[in-house]
């Protein structure tokens, strides 16, 4: 590891804070996307109007 000098603690905490936040926002975006897609799939499955005419007939 490179020597970050006498103010290393400020540099390290800045990067740790950014890293945690970026990781969290990516995780939340993916979680929200999957949860919403799952909810939509469930609703479309139980909504009769979503059936195509040939399958509904």
């Amino acid at each position: 590891m490179i020597d970050l000098g006498p103010h290393a603690v400020f540099i390290i905490w800045a990067y740790i804070g950014v890293l945690i936040s970026v990781f969290d926002v990516i995780a939340w975006t993916l979680f929200d996307a999957r949860a919403t897609a799952r909810q939509l799939a469930t609703l479309e499955a139980c909504n009769p109007r979503q059936r195509r005419p040939e399958t509904a007939a």
Partner: peptide, 17 residues
């Protein structure tokens, strides 16, 4: 982009509900 896709799906969910 990903959040926009999710929001579009969320609105579809609300309409279906």
């Amino acid at each position: 982009l990903k959040a926009m896709h999710t929001e579009i799906k969320r609105r579809r969910v609300m309409t279906l509900q």
